[in-house]
Design a protein around this nucleic acid. Sequence first.
DNA 1: GCAGTAAATTAGATTAGTCTAAAGTTATTA
DNA 2: TAATAACTTTAGACTAATCTAATTTACTGC
Lengths: 165, 165
Amino acid sequence: MELSSSLEDYLEAIYNVIKVKTAARATDIAKKLNVANSSVTNALQILVNRGLVNHAPYDIITLTPKGRKIAKQIAWKHEVFRDFFTTVLAIDHDTANKCACSIEHIIPDLVVERFVQYLDFERRCKYGGKRWVDGFGFMRNEIPDEKDPCEICKEKQESNARSKK
Amino acid sequence: MELSSSLEDYLEAIYNVIKVKTAARATDIAKKLNVANSSVTNALQILVNRGLVNHAPYDIITLTPKGRKIAKQIAWKHEVFRDFFTTVLAIDHDTANKCACSIEHIIPDLVVERFVQYLDFERRCKYGGKRWVDGFGFMRNEIPDEKDPCEICKEKQESNARSKK
DNA sequence: GCAGTAAATTAGATTAGTCTAAAGTTATTA
DNA sequence: TAATAACTTTAGACTAATCTAATTTACTGC
C-alpha cells in the first residue's frame, strides 16, 4: 500500500520526535510540519488504520514495528540527500534539508543506493573530493599531482598565487 | 504566482510538443501526461487565465512569451537532472527520466545551477569522471597516475587482471 | 456539402489534504 | 477540588486535481 508524500512526512516527523522523546504528542508533529493540529489528528487516523502508528484518542503516539521500518527508510533517504547536497554540492544546510525533505518521497530506493555509493567513492578514493569556492566553482580538495593539475585547478592556483602578492 | 507541480507538467508537455509540431492539441498533452482529455481542458483554462498559454476553445495550443520562459526553465531542469542521473550516477535512461520529471518541480534554481557546475567540473577536470561497474561500484574512468591508483581502483585493476588469465 | 468520426468541452462526482471554529478531554495549580 | 489552561478531536468547508459520461464542435472523405 503506497503512502503519499504527506503521510510519509507525518511518519518521519513522529520517528524524529520519538528519537528524542520516547513518545510523541500531536502538537509536536504539528509544530514540526507546520500544520494545524486537526491535520495531525486526521493523518493519525489514517496511519493507525494502516497499522503504522499506535494511537488512541488523547493518548500519546508511537510507531508500530511496520511503521518504524518505513519511517527509518524515509529518514535514511533524508540523510543521504542532505549529505549529498551539503558535502558534494556545498549547498547550505537549510536549503539542503528542504530539498532532501521534498525528494525523499519521490526517489526510488535503488537510486538512493546509488547516491550512497557515489558519496562513498568520492570520500574514499584518493583522487576524489572537491570543494566549492564561491565566485570560482568546484575544485579538487587535493590535486593528485601538484606539478600537473587539471586546467580548472591550475586556474585557481594561479589566481591564489596572484592574490597573495 | 507559484505554479503547482501539475501545472508545470502541463506547461512542460506543451513546450515539448511544440518543439516538434509548432502547435499542440489537447490530446497530445493528454497522451504525454497520461491523463484524461478533460483534465487537460481544465489545466488549460487555468494556464490561459494566468497568461501562460494561448488557447480558445477547440483551438490549438501555444505558449505566451511568459509561458515559454517558464516552460524552458522547467525543461532545462529536467535536462540537468536526467544528465546527472545518467552520466554521474549511471542510472538507466527510463528511471533517470522519471526521477528528473518529479524533482524538477521541487529543486530551486540555485541548486540546479550547482548541479550544472558539478557536471561541468566532472567532465572538464583531468582527474574527474567516473563510471559505474555493476557488481563492483564506481571507479575512475582514467587513473591519473597509473602506477599509484587509489585503493578502490587498485582493487578493480587487480580483479581485471585476474579475470584475464 | 454533408454524414460520420475524432477531438474538446462541460457537468458532476470523487479524493486527499488542508483549514478554522467549536466542543470535548486532560492536566495543572490556586 | 474547582477553575483554568493546554491540548485534542470533531464538524464542516474549501481547494486542487483528477475521473467518467454526456454533449458540443470541427474535420475529412465521399
